[in-house]
Amino acid sequence: MGNSEDKMVRVPKDMYDAIGELIKKYPQYGWKGPSEFVRDAIRRYVEELHRREILLKRAMKVMPGRVREILSKFMGPAEAEEAYARIMEIHEDDPEEYVAKVVEILKDYVGEKLADIIARRIVEERLNEGEHGD
């Protein structure tokens, strides 16, 4: 069980109590005590973060094409192509930063608020897909 390398983590009392309740409520998960519950939760959360990052990266990949599609419907192919070309010029690895830069370009065409809605929507589409698919 325990290991000399193990470290302690603090949780508030009500959270600790809640963990106890959950263990009782869901015996099917087989948590043997609060520590095992916390370890399981952390493992799951790290996985989730990792998955989100993959999806965000994937969203980044589809973003130029999807923006082109949406703009082409919304205001015609000329503007869509122009915006696409500008977005393809972005060099940015961090997903958050990347989306911000896309919005910056989009806002020249559709205003800041709609640019934000479009970018958000494209990311959401990926995340939703991730939830249902994979």
Partner: peptide, 9 residues
């Protein structure tokens, strides 16, 4: 949103 989009164009 409408206003911004229209005025941008």
């Amino acid at each position: 949103v409408l206003q911004e989009a229209i005025s941008s164009s």
